Simulated assay, not measured.
Amino acid sequence: MKSALFFLLLLAGLPLAGRAQSASRMDSLRRHGELTGARPSGGLLARPRATAPRSTPAGRPRGAAADPVQQHLLGTTVNLAEARAEQLPDLYEQFISTTRAERRQWSYEQWDAAGAVLARLNERYAQVRTELPLEERLRIRTFQGEYHALRGARKVKSAIDE
């Protein structure tokens, strides 16, 4: 019974995962944290930054390769603040591949860390998305939707298990 309910909830979210958003709708969602991987309750991750990236204590810009979680999820030491538009589809693909492979073992803290990496990816995507062809933008939107579906499925599973 639990698996059937879980399957139905997951299946109900699939049509939304690949749907492209209009630019104004994407901006609205991004402001509320729904596209960034951040919690919509507020905080630094829920707001896109229009200014230069903040620095870490080591003086490196946020999104730099110093983040070991980012290195693991993306499989590279790329500085996201400087990533080229043509690199982003592959970075998103690597991110979602790692997420798919490891999600069952993740704690809530690991989901939050992955959400922070996705927020940095989304921030860079917002800056360079017009340089990408439509097919690549749709592919990225699908990866974003899949991440949120996987995270939502984790929350549903946890609720069912309790």
Rank of each mutant, 00 (worst) to 15 (best):
A83D: 07
V69N: 09
R129G: 00
L73M: 12
A159L: 13
E123N: 07
Q71C: 06
R84I: 00
L11A: 13
G43E: 05
E162P: 05
T36Y: 01
L9A: 09
E109K: 14
D161N: 09
L14P: 04
L132P: 03
L118I: 05
A149D: 05
R39D: 14
R151M: 05
P57E: 07
L44H: 09
H148I: 00
P68S: 09
D161R: 14
Y147C: 01
S97Y: 04
E131I: 00
Y125V: 04
Q71P: 00
L138Q: 15
A58K: 11
L150D: 02
E123S: 15
E136G: 00
L44P: 10
H148V: 00
W111Y: 10
T51S: 14
R30F: 06
G145S: 06
A119Y: 00
D161A: 12
R103H: 10
K2G: 09
G63D: 04
R49W: 02
A17P: 01
T51H: 11
A114C: 08
A83P: 02
D161V: 01
G75T: 04
A64K: 00
R60P: 01
T98D: 10
L8M: 12
R103N: 08
E162Y: 07
L74R: 05
V128H: 01
R30M: 13
R124N: 07
K2A: 12
A58D: 13
Q21E: 15
G43I: 04
Q105A: 13
P53W: 04
Y147F: 15
R103P: 01
Q21H: 13
Q105R: 14
R54Y: 04
R54K: 09
A153W: 02
S22K: 11
A66W: 11
T142I: 03
E162H: 11
P133V: 08
I160H: 01
R19Y: 03
L132D: 07
T56C: 06
A83G: 07
A46K: 11
R62T: 11
E146C: 05
R141P: 00
T98P: 02
Q94D: 11
P53M: 06
R104W: 03
T142Q: 13
R54L: 12
R31A: 12
P40L: 05
A50D: 10
R47H: 09
I140C: 07
Q110G: 04
E109R: 15
R30C: 03
V128G: 03
L45N: 09
R60C: 09
L10I: 01
K157G: 10
R124Y: 06
Q144C: 07
T99N: 03
A159C: 05
Y125D: 08
G43H: 05
A38F: 05
G13F: 01
E146Q: 14
W106Y: 13
R84C: 02
V69C: 09
S22A: 14
E123F: 01
T77R: 15
S97Q: 14
S22R: 14
R31E: 11
S22H: 11
A52N: 04
A116D: 12
E86W: 06
S28N: 03
T130E: 15
T99D: 06
L88I: 00
A116N: 10
V156N: 03
F95M: 08
A85M: 04
